[in-house]
């Protein structure tokens, strides 16, 4: 089987999410990586070094610069005549593009794959991860998105694939990129961080969120996350949201501060190795999944903890 993998990148380097997708794709067959971008030679060279990648296809065109689904999906669909499966990481980019590819190929996508059971059978979470479905696809070609926390990352170095330049139809004229507000942070990225400190509604304001959560995170070298309630209230930006409809994380340690533990939040973090919860309500559902719980007022506990670390 030959598998085409969507490489998530910023034109210069490859994003970590790609590495788990390469591992998943490798379970199906030979992996060819597609780098679609603008001025993306750097990303293509980086993709060529990923262990397990046999070839890199580079489609370099202004139309692919911002990974607009309207432009890249036809490129991928055309390439797919030579492949048996298309695999993308289940990032916002992958989720935007893959179903558009699937429909162009008349294939029913399998979303957020957790494991590859065989060439046509996969497991995936449903109902916010409260159930795991095993599904078998009867489509001749497969289109899959991969949950990054469910697969080991392929080694970013060690491979030596060749880079082949290709071209597609380019701009479909359906959409254009206007702008982006991408947060720059010195902290580790949420989905690849080893430790995460997340704050909830209990923080009460953006000022208090940052005054309490940030110093604790920085002491631990951790990334900062948030519940939906904290994001909705404007205490933290949208890209901090962990959960069913936010980011899925599985760090070594997840520290939930003033988060109740709604199923939608648990869906995003319950596969963390160690969960630590700080909450004043001893019956909060978060304690049902926490390895270590501390009942009390976060406004006292968090500063003390930060100081004692």
């Amino acid at each position: 089987m030959s598998v085409l993998v969507w490489v998530e990148h910023d034109n210069a380097s490859v994003k970590d999410a790609t590495l788990a997708a390469v591992t998943a794709a490798g379970k199906l067959g030979e992996v060819v990586a597609l780098v679609a971008g603008q001025g993306a030679q750097g990303a293509a060279d980086a993709a060529a070094k990923i262990a397990g990648v046999s070839k890199v296809l580079l489609a370099d065109d202004a139309a692919y610069g911002h990974a607009l689904a309207e432009n890249v999906a036809p490129l991928i669909a055309e390439l797919m005549s030579g492949y048996d499966a298309f695999v993308a990481p289940a990032t916002t980019t992958g989720k935007n593009i893959a179903p558009r590819v699937a429909a162009l190929l008349d294939v029913m996508q399998v979303s957020e794959v957790l494991s590859v059971e065989s060439a046509d059978t996969f497991t995936r979470p449903i109902y916010a991860g409260n159930a795991i479905a095993t599904v078998k696809s009867s489509d001749a070609k497969k289109v899959l998105t991969i949950r990054g926390t469910a697969f080991d990352k392929a080694a970013a170095e060690g491979g030596s694939a060749s880079v082949e330049t290709i071209s597609g139809k380019g701009d479909t004229g359906l959409s254009s990129f206007v702008g982006a507000e991408i947060a720059k942070s010195e902290r580790p990225e949420l989905t690849s961080a080893k430790i995460i400190v997340s704050g909830g509604r209990a923080l009460g304001s953006g000022e208090q969120f940052h005054a309490l959560i940030d110093p604790l995170a920085d002491k631990l070298g951790a990334a900062v996350g948030a519940s939906r309630a904290a994001v909705d209230a404007g205490y933290a930006p949208n890209d901090y949201q962990v959960g069913q409809t936010g980011k899925i994380v599985a760090p070594e340690v997840y520290i939930a501060v003033g988060i109740s533990g709604a199923i939608q939040h648990l869906a995003g973090m319950k596969d963390s190795k160690v969960i630590i919860a700080i909450n004043k309500d001893e019956d909060a559902p978060i304690f049902q999944v926490a390895d270590v719980g501390l009942v009390g007022d976060l406004f006292k506990i968090v500063p003390e903890l930060t100081e004692k670390l």
Partner: peptide
Amino acid sequence: TREVDGGLETVKLK
């Protein structure tokens, strides 16, 4: 305006 992994992105669609 779209909520993406890195923050927000705006696209114009016909």
